[in-house]
Write a protein that binds this DNA or RNA. Structure first.
Lengths: 334, 334
DNA sequence: ACTGGTATCGATACCGGTATCGGTAACGTA
DNA sequence: TACGTTACCGATACCGGTATCGATACCAGT
């Protein structure tokens, strides 16, 4: 009554285990007649196969480990969608883990994944501590770090420079004539990439003899609610701001809603800028500025890179793929 | 230079493979001295372990297969978050698959997952065709269907009645005095649960001698942009609507934005109703109606049910856990 | 008739762990 | 002293597949 094994399928088909194995895998050295018999037997028994045995025996798995920091920020599920898409038809199975932006947790997840002997690993960010990096180097499989470019890659990296994204947004905003700029930030202790964007933004401000007029941050994860609340506080203290740079689009949406509630005209009176280019920004009644991160493309490219690296052409592969975030300022009427 | 095996760890520690295995697993029948030696050896070699061999040999895995229809609708990542949370500390590893609302794809994913011998399976919805159900029954592992309650469960089910949710929303809306109600729908061929909500809603309308004044639907996946566009069309034809029921909150947000753009007062002039209770609805400058689906709770309960069912107490477990969506009409000023 | 090649198949040895069970040493007890 | 118990350990047999290699049968060519 258990799941039937290959042995049983073979017995029923009147051939050896080995022949049955070959028949089901479509390998050579089997007669058409045998293939037919085995397929019929497998069908009748509802044979499913055992990947554990397969992988152990053949010493390769079809697993790709993927570690992301969060599930509640839609950006990462979108990256996963890209990875799944990029793996489509390759026969590879992604396995996910969520680190909650916790580097210790990330290490544990990676260790756990390695014990499944994955064919490759895709992890988020470049900020892994030495212990994790050692684990990854020892494992001797392709490691692809995604999302970020600012840092020292282990192996392959696909992403964008967040410092640069912050810098470009600052330049665009300054060019548009905004002068009194505030900042609201979420998860300021954990979200390394938001920190880099802010740093890039502030660097440009400084180069132009400016600085953030006011800053409101929180340890909480980003959300539109948090964006709304921090904006409320920011504007209570500094009603004269003409721009608010937000750690991401969730925050920016909330910031916009706070402005609407206060009767502030966006973007004429005050410009709201975020990051990611979430779908919702294209439906809002007024435009906010954002840089559209190529998150789906990052997933796809990472998946394809993983495939290529597994197939041995590791030598002549680009070890660094830079994708760019595209800025929309939203000053213009659509 | 390969990953070291248990054999090598044992050799280095000067004990047998078996003793090393026991030491690392914390099993009994090993002296403290041996445990120490083995742990040191494992540490020195950077031993990671091989789950494939472990699972094949012990005939049990720590895998829980999870199939969801989409990654781009934030609701499902949130369910996954709940599942991950519910599994925390149990040593179980969730493995995800995304079906894109495609039942054939779902079957293939399930077949693939079964070949990994998971300890349990969590799948979305109750609308699997017979072929898939047969596969699941044969597998002889606990199967937990989530999100929905309207249908015939295979084994366990955790969710809510979408028909009921639609019905309740209709009742609340009618009770608030709305009379001319329109509907906008997304993915109308695939999103079975949205279909059920609409059916429940319409049933109540009918009971009250009413009907949708107008309906706009699309095959596209739900998005705020689609909600905005469909609302635009709806109001162009029927400017006198005093309520729009949307297939979900993404659509409802877009619908709201369209109303704002048109200068319609929400909710006084026109009420927008959605489903899910997405985070964003709590930050909007005006309130929209929604039913908050207990999606994280569904994930958590499903995970706990899976744990319980695996541990053999299958007999005396609730086979059906009903959670309820909580309605917020949003008429009241907050 | 003999040789070599091709197509097909199966026996055997793994893969890297764990389950099981029997063996040995040390210790307590009659 | 003999015996039973307990603590600890390792040999062996798997788990369910695949890799590898040799065996067999059949055919064509000389």
């Amino acid at each position: 009554m258990r799941q039937p094994t290959l042995e049983e399928v073979a017995a029923r088909a009147g051939v050896s285990k080995m022949t049955a194995s070959r028949a089901l895998r479509g390998a050579r050295d089997v007669s058409a007649a045998s293939i037919e018999k085995v397929k019929v037997a497998a069908e009748q028994l509802g044979y499913v196969g055992n990947q554990l045995a397969l992988s152990l025996s053949s010493r390769r798995t079809n697993l790709i480990g993927v570690v992301i920091p969060s599930m509640s920020n839609i950006v990462f599920p979108e990256v996963l969608g890209g990875i799944i898409g990029g793996l489509e038809g390759s026969g590879l199975q992604p396995v996910f883990g969520v680190s909650d932006y916790d580097l210790d947790k990330e290490r544990d997840i990676i260790r756990n994944m390695l014990s499944w002997q994955p064919a490759a690993l895709i992890i988020t960010g470049l900020d892994q501590p030495e212990e994790t990096r050692k684990l990854l180097r020892q494992s001797d499989i392709p490691v692809i770090q995604i999302m970020d470019l600012d840092g020292e890659p282990i192996d392959f990296v696909v992403g964008l420079s967040h410092t640069q994204a912050g810098r470009e947004m600052a330049e665009a905003i300054l060019a548009s004539g905004r002068k009194r700029i505030g900042y609201i930030g979420s998860a300021v202790d954990r979200d390394k990439r938001a920190i880099k964007r802010r740093a890039g933004f502030e660097a440009v401000l400084q180069d132009n003899g400016r600085y953030f007029v006011s800053v409101e941050t929180s340890l909480e994860a980003s959300s539109s609610r948090l964006g709304r609340d921090l904006t409320g506080r920011l504007l209570a203290r500094h009603p004269d701001l003409d721009c608010i740079y937000c750690s991401n689009d969730d925050m920016a949406a909330g910031s916009l809603f706070a402005c609407m509630k206060l009767g502030r005209a966006v973007p004429d009176d005050i410009l709201i800028a975020g990051f990611n280019g979430l779908e919702i920004t294209s439906a809002l009644p007024v435009r906010i500025a954002t840089s559209t991160s190529p998150r789906r493309a990052i997933g796809e490219q990472a998946a394809q890179l993983a495939l290529a690296a597994m197939n041995g052409n590791g030598r002549d592969l680009a070890r660094r793929i830079e994708l760019r975030a595209e800025i929309t300022l939203g000053d213009a009427e659509r």
